[in-house]
């Protein structure tokens, strides 16, 4: 299939809602974190929401890490 359109690919083929169903906003160590819930019930970090720049240098809040 060849598409010729000014629309972006995601407009024509919207990603399924299920892909983001597991995304939650949680409180972890007093920080607001957006995380994906994995099948085994643990959380994998997606984004840290904080105004403290030092939080972003903290090894514990690197996106992709599993929160215990």
């Amino acid at each position: 299939m060849i598409l010729y359109t000014p629309l972006s690919e995601s407009d024509i083929f919207p990603s399924s809602e299920n892909a983001y169903k597991n995304r939650e906003c949680i409180n972890y160590n007093g920080k607001m974190i957006i995380a994906d819930k994995t099948d085994d019930g643990s959380y994998q970090m997606v984004q840290l929401i904080s105004t403290d720049p030092q939080d972003y240098l903290d090894q514990r809040y690197i996106p992709g890490t599993f929160l215990s």
Binding site: T51, D52, P53, Q54, Q59, R60
Partner: peptide, 13 residues
């Protein structure tokens, strides 16, 4: 031990 950086007096939004 995770080394804690000192608290920043300027925050970023």
């Amino acid at each position: 031990n995770v080394v804690q950086a000192p608290d920043s007096n300027i925050h970023v939004l």
